Amino acid sequence: LVRYRTISKIPQITLNFVDLKGDPFLASPTSDREIIAPKIKERTHNVTEKVTQVLSLGADVLPEYKLQAPRIHRWTILHYSPFKAVWDWLILLLVIYTAVFTPYSAAFLLKETEEGPPATECGYACQPLAVVDLIVDIMFIVDILINFRTTYVNANEEVVSHPGRIAVHYFKGWFLIDMVAAIPFDLLIFGSGSEELIGLLKTARLLRLVRVARKLDRYSEYGAAVLFLLMCTFALIAHWLACIWYAIGNMEQPHMDSRIGWLHNLGDQIGKPYNSSGLGGPSIKDKYVTALYFTFSSLTSVGFGNVSPNTNSEKIFSICVMLIGSLMYASIFGNVSAIIQRLYSGTARYHTQMLRVREFIRFHQIPNPLRQRLEEYFQHAWSYTNGIDMNAVLKGFPECLQADICLHLNRSLLQHCKPFRGATKGCLRALAMKFKTTHAPPGDTLVHAGDLLTALYFISRGSIEILRGDVVVAILGKNDIFGEPLNLYARPGKSNGDVRALTYCDLHKIHR
């Protein structure tokens, strides 16, 4: 019993810090008490220290592992850092350059016999395009090294910054494609005289377009951006097909006994025919423009016929181009109408809503002055909100995010209106959640004399007048207030005048 009563005193000691020596009952000389009392004092002292730490809000209350900052290894790049964003855009520009100039170089340097010394005699450094290609190869190699040090988000939505895990993730992902696209074939085969082989191998750079397509997928929600990307894709495919079309004609031209190829026909049409040795002929500019003209006309199913396939190889390629053109029509131009419709969806919704308003007016036989006010209010409210119901949009977000959005939407009023000066951010967040926005066209009466005042109004834009009878008592403008002081009276009061809008007004109100 003594032991039980001794232990039962522990909660009292913990909360009230009572010393055991003052209790005459606990001072009985028993061996059990002498053993338990020192333990009680020690526990009391420890609990006292913990309570003191909690009340003082000291940093040592938290466990040590929670006080440590997340460790980022040296030379690790955050995937959302500004440097990584700028670097990704730079790589994107280099990939676009590669997609345009690599097929052009591979096709127009394929057994090209233009006048001038061969590239091997001039030297590697004197070729501007080769120098640019070398810079692109170096940048792609540097990009691989950067990807080995860039964080990523795993399946659990955690940012991984450990170098080993980053390397394994990159090896399992895009490393092989990036490595093949970054191989400097110019340096590996330079001086061997195989410019045709170098041009063909350099087309491996186009593998990076797969990554670019995935990154550009984030802009699919913007109709104008999608339309622009589709047109660029169409032009890029036409450019690639033009390079292939020229390569076919250029390879067949020296081996044909009869002059029936499209390059021969082009030379005869523009007065620059090929001679018996295969030299001469149109310039590279004429060849490229004509090839691009043929691919565009074939892809769009126009086909004027002034550039036509004559050999079997050219006919087979033309059939493939027609098939590609039909697929592009289905996948690209078939979506253009939907994209344009999405661009004008706001206008369509406006006309639909206006039609419903006019049908309501016609069905209920609203008189002319009231009908005009109804239409003007709808037009003004639509121009202010673009038909978007803010309350319906915010309803799907958590309250903390709703408060931040409301604070942002009402920031101008909260910053410049005098009653809100000096208020804490928590108070402003709470008030912003209570605001209701209303609009009024010129001549609209917001409050009639004798109406119950259940709200306090803040003028965000425009001006109003307060009338008693036919006498203008006051004219209020931006950041002015009218209405009933909230919670100042037990019952809502009545208006002693009319409140009429002089201009288009936007008002925020808080109800009782």
Results as ranks from 00 to 15, higher is better:
Met433Phe: 08
Ala440Val: 12
Leu93Pro: 01
His264Pro: 01
Leu428Asp: 01
Leu401Met: 08
Leu227Trp: 01
Cys232Ser: 13
Leu292Thr: 01
Ala167Arg: 03
Glu115Lys: 13
Leu343Val: 07
Pro441Arg: 06
Ala247Val: 14
Ala125Leu: 15
Val168Gly: 10
Tyr124Pro: 04
Val212Pro: 10
Asp137Leu: 01
Leu201His: 01
Arg342Tyr: 13
Pro273Ser: 03
Gly261Ala: 01
Val289Met: 01
Glu375Ala: 03
Glu64Ser: 06
Pro419Gly: 10
Asp286His: 01
Tyr170Pro: 01
Asp444Met: 09
Val159Gly: 01
Ala430Asp: 04
Asn410Phe: 09
Ala430Tyr: 07
Leu78Cys: 04
Glu359Cys: 01
Glu314Pro: 01
Met322Lys: 02
Ile260Cys: 03
Leu409Ser: 03
Glu195Ser: 14
Cys406Ile: 05
Gln365Gly: 08
Trp87Cys: 01
Ala167Ser: 04
Ile361Met: 08
Trp262Asp: 04
Pro254Gly: 12
Trp89Asn: 01
Gly443Thr: 01
Phe420Asp: 03
Ala430Met: 12
Thr233Pro: 01
Tyr170Leu: 01
Leu227Phe: 13
Pro441Gln: 06
Ser412Asp: 12
Gln269Tyr: 01
Gly334Ser: 03
Tyr384Arg: 11
Leu134Ser: 06
Leu67Pro: 05
Gly281Cys: 01
Asp257Gly: 14
Ala381Leu: 12
Tyr350Trp: 09
Leu78Met: 06
Lys202Leu: 01
Thr352Ala: 09
Ile91Phe: 01
Pro103Ser: 01
Gly278Pro: 01
Trp87Met: 01
Asp217Tyr: 06
Tyr384Ile: 15
Ser105Trp: 11
Asn306Tyr: 01
Tyr104Glu: 01
His416Ala: 08
Ala182Cys: 13
His408Gln: 01
Gly422Glu: 12
Leu241Met: 04
Leu176Asn: 01
Asp186Trp: 10
Leu129Asp: 03
Phe397Ala: 03
Leu93Gly: 07
Glu115Val: 14
Ile144Tyr: 01
Tyr124Gln: 03
Leu110Met: 15
Cys427Val: 10
Ala204His: 01
Val168Gln: 10
Tyr222Phe: 15
Ile340Thr: 05
Met256Glu: 15
Ala213Val: 07
Cys406Asp: 01
Ser192Phe: 14
Phe333Arg: 03
